[in-house]
């Protein structure tokens, strides 16, 4: 009998693939599952609807609504919608990725096999990323098509950076939703939690901090993701902006608005990803399929 834990030869001639290959196999089948799901097409529909709406509005009201430069155009189009698309992908493909395996009992089909739970988790994560990239890819293509139509000469380099930041945000947001999905055993509950957090929670907390705490919300993923839009403004917004309001007796209180710097934004997103990925994997390893 061999002592190797990587490949295990059986007398039937089966050679157990390595855990890394098993990740690839899970990804492959999960992708075909995602691409046939109603969810994927709903999200594709949402992406196309947003694109169509923007295309129509620009055609109707004129490209100058966004400003005069090509950067203004990409800022108005991409800067406002890309993070929204990312949040939708993360919720749709990650919100119940793991909890659904429990609730629908589909997880029971795989876990009894010689495969690490982490291979299932990671394989599903890559599949969710692939499905999200298709949606994001379609949105990017339509953005570029419009951009090049109105500003044929060039695509500003900031758009490329913004695109990369969007990918980092997608990776991080999917890590977060996968983590939440491994926290619960109910699909709808874990989707609800991620929806509340990503669509309202983060911005609400940011708002509260702005009003009451007056500190930089460096611990919020949504704050880190602001670099996606910020990079498209010229000049890049200052890290802190002081504004003084006007109260009844003249000068009111002074507020500080924070904008993440690019290294800061990237660090926030990558740390979120790392922490939630580790926690999610540990949770899933320990979860009981009762």
């Amino acid at each position: 009998m061999s002592n190797s834990s990587q490949t295990e030869e059986s007398k039937e001639g089966n050679i157990l693939p390595s855990s890394v290959s098993q990740v690839g196999i899970v990804t492959k089948y999960e992708i075909s599952n995602y691409f046939r799901s109603r969810r994927f097409f709903i999200l594709l529909g949402i992406g196309l609807a947003i694109s169509a709406l923007l295309t129509f509005l620009i055609a109707h009201y004129g490209v100058s609504s966004f400003g005069t430069t090509s950067l203004d155009f990409y800022s108005g189009w991409w800067g406002r919608s890309a993070t929204f698309i990312v949040v939708f992908c993360a919720i749709f493909f990650g919100g119940d990725a793991i909890s659904g395996e429990f609730q629908n009992k589909t997880g029971y089909f795989l876990v009894g096999n010689p495969i690490r739970r982490s291979s299932i988790y990671i394989g599903k994560w890559f599949a969710a990323l692939a499905a999200s990239l298709i949606i994001l890819g379609v949105f990017t293509a339509i953005t570029l098509a419009n951009g090049l139509y109105y500003f044929p000469s060039s695509v500003p380099y900031q758009f490329e950076e913004s695109f990369v930041f969007t990918l980092v945000y997608l990776i991080s947001a999917l890590g977060l939703t996968f983590f939440f999905s491994s926290l619960f055993k109910s699909s709808s509950f874990s989707i609800l939690v991620t929806v509340i957090l990503l669509l309202f929670g983060f911005s609400l907390i940011e708002e509260l901090i702005f009003v009451f705490a007056h500190i930089e919300p460096w611990f919020l993923l949504s704050y880190g993701s602001e670099i996606v839009g910020d990079i498209l403004t010229n000049p890049y917004p200052q890290h802190t902006i002081q504004t003084t309001g006007f109260g009844p007796g003249g000068r009111g209180p002074t507020f500080t608005t924070y904008n993440p710097t690019i290294p800061e934004g990237l660090a926030i997103m990558l740390i979120y990803f790392t922490v939630t990925a580790v926690l999610g994997l540990v949770l899933f390893e320990r979860k009981e399929f009762t």
Partner: peptide, 19 residues
């Protein structure tokens, strides 16, 4: 992985991805 490499199991009634 090693323990289950030569073991096939059916526990309760798992579901298969409907698609």
């Amino acid at each position: 992985r090693k323990a289950l490499a030569h073991c096939g199991a059916l526990i309760e009634t798992p579901e298969i991805y409907p698609s």
